[in-house]
Design a protein around this nucleic acid. Sequence first.
DNA 1: CTAAATGCAAATGCTTTGCAATTCC
DNA 2: GGAATTGCAAAGCATTTGCATTTAG
Lengths: 149, 149
Amino acid sequence: MIAIEDKFKSYLKSKGLKFTPEREAILKEIFSFHGHFNVDGLYERLLRHNKNISRATIYRTLPLLVKNGLIEETFHCQDKSNYEHIFGHKHHDHMLCIGCGKVVGFREEEIEKLQEMVCKKYDFHSIKHKLGIKGYCKECYKKFKNNKA
Amino acid sequence: MIAIEDKFKSYLKSKGLKFTPEREAILKEIFSFHGHFNVDGLYERLLRHNKNISRATIYRTLPLLVKNGLIEETFHCQDKSNYEHIFGHKHHDHMLCIGCGKVVGFREEEIEKLQEMVCKKYDFHSIKHKLGIKGYCKECYKKFKNNKA
DNA sequence: CTAAATGCAAATGCTTTGCAATTCC
DNA sequence: GGAATTGCAAAGCATTTGCATTTAG
């Protein structure tokens, strides 16, 4: 956590921005939780921890954390913006269960390599990529099959 | 085009819905154009072809086309919903250039296979997947490098 | 001290919806 | 004829923004 905070502090300093209590609380709340989150969820978790921080401030802080490489927007065909913290994690992709909403992260080296190859083939300079697979997890697939029959 | 229209007609009939001139125009407009589109773009193209169809109707029609498997929502980290028509095309993934906004579709059998393998490994029953790569195309990368230097 | 940050409330922009009039089947 | 569809305008929602006030450095 110290490393994360330092990273964010350096980033802010380099841009002439301030490390405020609000930003500190947001950062801590995000990194105290594993999994994906959206603005509303984060807002409510902060409230529960007695941090009454306005949504506006959250909306203004998240892009800073993204630019600093601490969090990332995830995307699986949902409406609201979703984020997850990525500092210290290797890039991974996601499987999203339509049944229960569960999100499972996975990393497959071969897929990563192949993507690099494809980019070379097309002379495309990749910055980042996202792979999302939608379907049913084991449990939901069982239910689904039974309901169908 | 006849095949597409028939597919849509059967779908509508099977759901007790109607094939209206508006739906016909929307369908034709979508399939007369290659590439990605959003509601506003489609609305304006329809206008230019003297079809004054309200956005509400477009918003109500697109989900039908999605359910019918004629179009698909694409997703590359943009805000507005984006679609592309998919009937008669094999599934493909996308590369999105941050510089010029160009979207290039590609299909890589190996990646498709690997994804199936990953799903098996996790006992996940995939319905669909989306892979988006963000970066710079050849031309924009050149500019980008020069500006940086 | 002073530029940056905060919270509020208003504004924005995409999408959805209620409703009366119309149209397909 | 009657359920489905349309267009309009209003409503919804997530997100952004202007502004007066507060605060970090």
